[in-house]
Simulated scan of single mutants.
Amino acid sequence: MDKVMRLASEKGVVIFSKSSCCLCYAVNILFQELKVNPMVHELDQDPDGREMEKALTRLGCNAPVPAVFIDGKLVGSTNEVMSLHLSGSLIPLLKPYQA
Rank of each mutant, 00 (worst) to 15 (best):
R6K: 14
G49R: 05
A8D: 09
S89T: 00
S20I: 02
A63I: 13
C22G: 07
E51F: 07
N79P: 03
E53Y: 00
P96I: 09
I29Q: 15
D2Y: 03
S77Q: 07
V40C: 04
P64H: 12
S83R: 12
V75S: 03
Q32V: 07
T57C: 01
V13S: 04
C61E: 09
M1Q: 13
V65M: 10
V40K: 00
D44M: 02
A55N: 13
F16L: 07
D2G: 03
F31S: 09
Q32H: 09
I70F: 04
I29V: 15
K18I: 00
K35W: 10
I15V: 15
K35V: 12
C22V: 09
G88S: 02
D71I: 10
V36R: 01
D46S: 03
V13I: 04
K3A: 11
L30Y: 07
L34K: 15
S77I: 01
G76W: 10
K73I: 05
L84M: 12
A99T: 13
V81C: 06
T78E: 07
G12L: 04
P47Q: 13
V81I: 13
L90V: 08
C24R: 05
V4T: 04
L74W: 11
R58F: 14
D44L: 02
V4H: 05
L7Y: 09
P92N: 04
E80R: 14
Y25N: 12
L84I: 07
G60C: 11
F69S: 09
S19L: 06
S19D: 11
S19Q: 06
V14P: 00
M52N: 03
Y25F: 11
V13N: 01
V36M: 01
G72K: 06
L94V: 09
C24K: 05
L86N: 09
V81Q: 05
P92R: 12
C22R: 10
A8L: 05
L34M: 15
K18G: 04
M39A: 10
L7R: 08
A99W: 00
V65A: 06
Q98G: 03
S83C: 08
M82A: 05
K3Y: 01
I91T: 12
P47A: 11
L23M: 14
G76R: 10
L86P: 00
S9C: 10
G72M: 05
A55L: 13
M5Q: 14
S20H: 08
C24E: 09
S20E: 11
F69E: 02
H85W: 05
K11W: 00
K18L: 00
L23D: 08
A67K: 00
C24H: 08
L90P: 00
N62V: 13
S9L: 03
P92G: 04
D2S: 07
T78P: 00
K73L: 06
L30C: 12
G72H: 04
D46P: 02
V27H: 02
H85N: 13
N62I: 13
L43M: 12
P92L: 01
L30K: 10
L84F: 07
M39E: 11
L90S: 03
T57V: 10
L30R: 08
R6M: 07
C22M: 09
D44R: 03
G76Y: 11
G72S: 09
R58M: 14
S87M: 02
K11A: 13
V27Q: 06
D71F: 06
K54W: 13
A63K: 12
Y25E: 10
F31C: 07
Q45K: 13
L86A: 11
T57A: 03
R58S: 15
Q45N: 14
H85M: 01
